[in-house]
Amino acid sequence: MITHFQWKPLFEDRNLPGWRISFYFKKQSFQAIYHKNGEIEWTGIHPEADDETSVKSMIHELMLYHVYE
């Protein structure tokens, strides 16, 4: 489960899409850029291959709830 999920616009002009996201997963901190097309670009370490698909799914759900709603 993702905890402490945070997001902020990538650019000061909020009309331009793109967001910096950060969160914890399995007690480890992760940071990424969430692009307008849904692509996730990891800016540091990324989840293990076994977890990456489920983490991306959770991120998409959180972004839909927080940003697009």
Score class of each variant (00 low, 15 high):
13 D>I: 03
20 R>T: 15
28 Q>G: 08
37 N>Q: 07
10 L>V: 02
61 E>R: 08
54 S>G: 06
24 Y>R: 08
68 Y>F: 11
61 E>H: 10
35 H>M: 09
31 Q>K: 10
19 W>R: 11
64 L>A: 14
18 G>Y: 02
46 H>K: 09
34 Y>D: 05
41 E>V: 09
13 D>A: 02
69 E>H: 05
54 S>V: 07
14 R>W: 09
55 V>S: 04
52 E>V: 12
6 Q>L: 08
45 I>Q: 10
21 I>S: 03
29 S>F: 15
26 K>T: 02
65 Y>W: 11
35 H>F: 12
3 T>L: 02
62 L>W: 03
28 Q>I: 14
40 I>T: 03
19 W>I: 06
46 H>M: 05
40 I>C: 00
58 M>R: 13
36 K>Y: 15
64 L>F: 14
33 I>S: 04
59 I>C: 04
7 W>D: 07
67 V>I: 08
60 H>Y: 04
9 P>Q: 10
61 E>F: 11
4 H>L: 04
50 D>P: 03
56 K>C: 13
48 E>K: 13
53 T>C: 13
10 L>Q: 07
61 E>V: 10
24 Y>E: 09
4 H>P: 00
4 H>C: 07
18 G>S: 01
41 E>T: 04
21 I>R: 02
41 E>Q: 13
69 E>A: 09
34 Y>V: 04
19 W>P: 09
23 F>D: 05
53 T>F: 13
19 W>G: 10
16 L>G: 05
42 W>H: 05
36 K>E: 15
49 A>T: 11
33 I>D: 09
53 T>H: 14
42 W>Q: 00
42 W>C: 03
31 Q>P: 03
35 H>Q: 15
19 W>N: 11
50 D>S: 15
36 K>L: 15
3 T>F: 01
4 H>A: 09
47 P>W: 05
5 F>N: 00
57 S>V: 09
66 H>G: 10
7 W>A: 12
46 H>T: 11
58 M>N: 12
25 F>L: 01
66 H>P: 06
67 V>A: 10
35 H>G: 05
1 M>G: 09
48 E>S: 08
25 F>H: 07
30 F>P: 01
48 E>C: 08
24 Y>I: 01
66 H>V: 07
42 W>I: 03
31 Q>N: 09
21 I>C: 02
15 N>K: 15
9 P>S: 07
35 H>R: 14
18 G>E: 01
23 F>A: 00
2 I>L: 06
41 E>H: 07
21 I>F: 05
41 E>W: 06
33 I>H: 06
34 Y>E: 03
41 E>I: 15
58 M>L: 13
34 Y>K: 04
40 I>D: 01
69 E>M: 08
34 Y>L: 01
64 L>E: 13
27 K>T: 14
22 S>R: 13
10 L>P: 05
5 F>M: 03
67 V>P: 08
21 I>Q: 01
4 H>Y: 04
46 H>S: 07
30 F>H: 00
32 A>S: 03
18 G>L: 06
25 F>G: 13
5 F>E: 00
7 W>P: 09
58 M>D: 14
30 F>R: 00
